[in-house]
């Protein structure tokens, strides 16, 4: 199929039609923050962090396929403010005690807070009552830390198979629910996969401690997205 032309932040790029704007931006070294997005699984656009101006409208680029002559702004002050506010909302909505979290330093939510230099959320902390589900022999689900991105739900092997992870309830009562019968024989590999899918420390492998010391973790020294921004590739 012939290439199309799209404009990102004032610069024209040729791109494959139908490819998600997020992926095109990434290829050309433009980082657009994401949280609910996970490489290789169907995007859902629920965190809204990747919201950009597409032809003047606020749209999530993880779910929007590129079309010819599309004009995209990814990093205006207004958009960055929206993203920072969403990060603050998530910190206020859950119980994110970073110092006590195994994922600290490797957590995408925390990394975005670092990127946006969040010193304190502008919102009062809700301190909702949340449980920890430790019934599964291999993994724990700490609902306090869950940001309800649905990555674990969407990372399903075969669509026709019964779901392991699902949502329950609605609105601000929504939470992740694990089918304990179907996951009773989870092995280490699946447990690791589930943990890796989670952007925060909500899915944690049991009987596994801190591998990497604080200071050497993924986002301790380099901001999230810097790998994309530093690649400097142009098509």
């Amino acid at each position: 199929m012939s290439k199309i032309l799209i404009n990102i932040n004032g610069k024209d790029y040729s791109a494959e039609p139908g490819k998600m704007v997020l992926d095109i931006a990434k290829e050309v070294g433009i980082y657009i923050p994401t949280l609910c997005h996970y490489e290789g699984i169907k995007p859902q656009g629920s965190c809204r962090i990747c919201t950009c101006k597409i032809d003047g409208r606020n749209m999530t680029v993880c779910t929007t396929p590129a079309t010819h002559r599309m004009v995209i702004e990814t990093n205006t002050e207004e958009l960055e403010k929206i993203r920072a506010t969403i990060v603050e909302l998530l910190f206020a909505e859950g119980n994110h005690f970073c110092p006590a979290c195994e994922r600290s330093g490797n957590c995408e939510l925390q990394a975005l807070a670092y990127r946006y230099k969040m010193m304190v959320p502008q919102f009062p902390y809700i301190f909702p009552a949340k449980d920890i589900d430790a019934k599964n022999p291999k993994i724990m689900i700490d609902h306090n830390r869950c940001i309800l991105c649905k990555r674990c739900i969407r990372r399903k092997q075969e669509p026709e198979n019964p779901s392991w992870f699902v949502f329950k309830d609605r609105g601000n009562k929504v939470q992740i629910n694990l089918d304990h019968e179907l996951t009773a024989d989870f092995d280490d590999e699946l447990a690791q996969k589930a943990m890796d899918t989670c952007p925060v420390g909500a899915i944690i492998r049991k009987e596994k401690g801190f591998d990497v010391p604080i200071g050497s973790r993924k986002y301790d020294k380099n901001p999230i997205g810097s790998d994309i921004e530093n690649q400097g590739v142009t098509l």
């Binding site: 629920s46 998530l90 309800l148 929504v174």
Partner: peptide, 18 residues
Amino acid sequence: FIEESCGSCVPCRAMTSQ
């Protein structure tokens, strides 16, 4: 609106309560 939010998008789920 808080009662009727589906809970999927962060701003709708969390901001309306704020």
